[in-house]
Lab assay of single mutants.
Amino acid sequence: MSGNGNAAATAEENSPKMRVIRVGTRKSQLARIQTDSVVATLKASYPGLQFEIIAMSTTGDKILDTALSKIGEKSLFTKELEHALEKNEVDLVVHSLKDLPTVLPPGFTIGAICKRENPHDAVVFHPKFVGKTLETLPEKSVVGTSSLRRAAQLQRKFPHLEFRSIRGNLNTRLRKLDEQQEFSAIILATAGLQRMGWHNRVGQILHPEECMYAVGQGALGVEVRAKDQDILDLVGVLHDPETLLRCIAERAFLRHLEGGCSVPVAVHTAMKDGQLYLTGGVWSLDGSDSIQETMQATIHVPAQHEDGPEDDPQLVGITARNIPRGPQLAAQNLGISLANLLLSKGAKNILDVARQLNDAH
Rank of each mutant, 00 (worst) to 15 (best):
K157H: 13
S165M: 06
E89S: 13
A151K: 08
R156W: 11
V130E: 15
L276C: 11
S57A: 06
E306T: 03
F108I: 14
L148M: 14
G335F: 10
K176A: 08
D311G: 14
Q29A: 12
M212L: 14
M271A: 03
F183I: 14
G60L: 01
L49W: 08
V103W: 15
K70A: 09
L342D: 01
T279E: 07
C114W: 08
R156C: 09
E162T: 05
Q314H: 13
H95W: 01
A266I: 04
G335W: 03
E82I: 01
Q304I: 03
D121T: 01
Q155E: 10
P47Q: 11
E258V: 15
K348N: 15
R255M: 13
P241S: 14
R201L: 14
L137S: 06
I248M: 05
L244G: 01
L342H: 15
I33K: 01
G274R: 05
V103Q: 15
V38T: 12
D289L: 08
S337I: 10
A122G: 11
N322C: 15
I71V: 11
V20T: 12
L68C: 09
E135P: 11
I318M: 08
L170Y: 15
K132I: 11
E139P: 01
K62D: 15
L193G: 13
D230A: 05
E210M: 01
R150C: 06
C261G: 04
T78S: 08
Q34K: 01
K115L: 12
A122Y: 03
V222E: 05
K140T: 10
L278F: 09
Q180I: 04
I205E: 14
Q155A: 14
K132A: 10
G259D: 11
L234D: 04
T279M: 05
L285H: 08
G192T: 04
I186S: 06
T102S: 13
L174G: 04
A67R: 14
S147I: 08
G218V: 05
P302I: 01
S262N: 15
V130S: 04
H160I: 10
A330G: 09
R201D: 12
T78E: 01
N171F: 04
R195G: 04
E250S: 01
D311W: 08
E89W: 08
Q296P: 07
L92A: 10
F125A: 05
N322S: 07
L329Y: 05
L351A: 01
P105A: 11
A331D: 07
L134Y: 01
Q194H: 05
K227H: 05
R195S: 01
F253I: 13
L351V: 05
T41L: 09
H83M: 12
V224C: 14
D230C: 01
L100N: 01
T190G: 11
V235D: 01
A347G: 01
K272V: 15
Q204C: 01
D352K: 10
P101K: 01
F108T: 14
K98M: 01
H256E: 15
L276F: 04
T35R: 01
V94I: 07
I336L: 05
R150N: 01
L206S: 04
I21Q: 01
D36H: 13
L254I: 01
A122W: 01
P101H: 12
S69D: 09
L315W: 10
S45W: 10
V282H: 05
P159R: 10
R325E: 11
K70D: 09
G144H: 01
F253W: 04
L329S: 13
A185G: 15
V222R: 01
L234W: 11
A55D: 11
L76V: 13
G259C: 10
G346T: 08
A112P: 05
G308D: 13
R246Y: 06
K74A: 10
G236W: 01
D36W: 07
V215K: 01
T294L: 09
G346A: 05
A191K: 04
N322M: 10
A297V: 07
R175V: 13
A151L: 11
L100I: 14
A191D: 04
A347H: 05
D307K: 15
T294F: 09
G192C: 11
L134T: 05
L278T: 06
I299S: 06
Y46N: 14
I186R: 01
K348R: 15
E306Y: 05
A320P: 04
V222F: 01
L342Y: 13
E139N: 13
D352A: 12
S165A: 07
S147W: 07
S141P: 04
G287W: 01
K132L: 10
P264A: 04
A339C: 01
V38G: 01
R164Y: 07
D91I: 04
E223Q: 03
R355G: 15
R321A: 12
K74I: 07
A214K: 01
V267L: 11
R195V: 04
T58G: 01
A266T: 07
H160K: 14
N358M: 15
K227D: 15
R32M: 12
S69R: 11
C261A: 01
L64Q: 08
D65I: 08
L193I: 05
E117Y: 11
L81K: 01
P106E: 14
Q292K: 05
L357C: 01
L104Y: 09
D307N: 14
D286R: 12
S288E: 14
E73A: 09
A152P: 07
Q194N: 06
V130F: 08
A226D: 11
V103I: 08
F125H: 04
S69G: 10
Q314I: 07
V215I: 04
E293P: 01
K176N: 08
